[in-house]
């Protein structure tokens, strides 16, 4: 087992490393890595360095973090709900983030909170609020979290929040609506390292929670009662899984907007390769999720050169048919 985990991490980690090294060099303008790192050229004159450090590197790093977070969240939620079609969007956390972002775009785009831009901050707050609402609805002190209540609460919350978003958009002017629609597509054009650094504390807390879970998720995805009889604290594990996946989703969505389908495609592809044991599925999903989104973004940046598409369009175009294929394959 240790060997399997090591091989998985080495294989997918190597792939990610290669993709992350190559991706910043590819784009509408060819650049040279040697020139970008050449200290003898002043930064103001070094176009290669500007493109590398401002346009491409943050985008690749953001892609890797968002991809890893969404894919891991998807894998955790699929185990928690014992449902292979569960996704980070299922719980309404993404919708909460969207509402927060759109409120900020419409009413507070000039506000500043220290170093944080209002839109990522508002979307983070929105996501965490949605998570709290769903959690309180499904919580009961003695019994395991009701996963069907969680799912239904997520569906209801998604519908309600969508209505709120439409309402806010109706009040918005043309420019604001345009920005809101662009945000909803999901885009990795973060423009600087600041937002990435800001999202790290949330991502790290999610990672710390999820780190405890792989073995327990195996048992839980087989049978909750049997897991309890084997010494798993079912309620505690379910709460950690829910909060961990929600935090990961919240951080990812506040960084990039809701990039669709990564949380569902990646865990399934990974299971086809490494099997279903969560001790290999979770690290593989994180690493391959990062690889996958950086690659999708590479396609988005170069497909209609020199126009750069938002990555959310590429993942959604891939994801819809993939989702249908999963449904058909299951029957």
């Amino acid at each position: 087992m240790r060997g399997r985990v090591a091989a998985t991490v080495a294989g997918f980690g190597g792939l990610l490393l290669v993709v992350c090294l190559v991706a910043p060099l590819v784009g509408s303008t060819p650049i040279s890595l040697a020139r970008a790192f050449d200290r003898s050229i002043p930064y103001a004159d070094n176009v290669d360095a500007q493109i590398f450090f401002v346009a491409r590197l943050p985008r690749v790093v953001a892609g890797a973090l968002v991809g890893a977070a969404l894919a891991t969240a998807g894998a955790v939620l699929q185990a928690l709900f014992r449902n292979p079609l569960a996704a980070p969007e299922t719980l309404g956390v993404s919708a909460g983030a969207a509402l927060g972002a759109i409120l900020a775009i419409t009413f507070a785009s000039e506000a500043r909170f220290g170093p944080l831009a209002p839109v990522p901050l508002a979307s983070l707050v929105g996501a965490l609020s949605a998570m709290t609402v769903v959690y309180l609805l499904a919580r009961s002190t003695r019994r395991p979290l009701s996963t069907s209540v969680l799912l239904l609460a997520g569906v209801a919350l998604n519908a309600f929040i969508s209505a709120m978003i439409l309402f806010v958009q109706y009040l918005a002017d043309f420019t604001q609506t345009y920005r809101a629609v662009r945000w909803l597509i999901g885009d990795l054009d973060v423009g600087a390292m600041g937002p990435i650094v800001a999202s790290l504390p949330v991502l790290l807390s999610a990672a710390l929670l999820i780190l405890w879970l792989p073995s327990a998720l195996n048992l839980l995805s087989v049978d909750a009662d049997a897991a309890a009889a084997r010494g798993v604290h079912v309620i505690r594990v379910q709460r950690m899984a829910f909060v961990g996946a929600s935090l990961a989703t919240a951080a990812a969505v506040s960084l990039s907007g809701p990039v669709a389908f990564v949380g569902i495609i990646v865990p399934h592809l990974v299971r086809l390769v490494v099997g279903v044991d969560h001790r290999v599925v979770l690290p593989a999903a994180a690493l391959f999720g990062a690889t996958f989104l950086v690659l999708c973004d590479l396609v988005a940046r170069t497909l209609l050169n020199p126009v750069e598409l938002p990555v959310g369009i590429v993942t959604a175009i891939l994801g819809g048919p993939f989702f249908l294929w999963l449904l058909v394959r299951k029957r």
């Binding site: 792989p214 073995s215 195996n218 084997r230």
Partner: peptide, 21 residues
């Protein structure tokens, strides 16, 4: 089970109480 575990994986899960998380 929600996922397609192999037989040996299912049986090895019985070792959880001796191994922990």
């Amino acid at each position: 089970p929600a996922f397609d575990y192999t037989v040996i994986e299912m049986v090895l899960m019985g070792r959880y109480p001796h191994l922990g998380p």
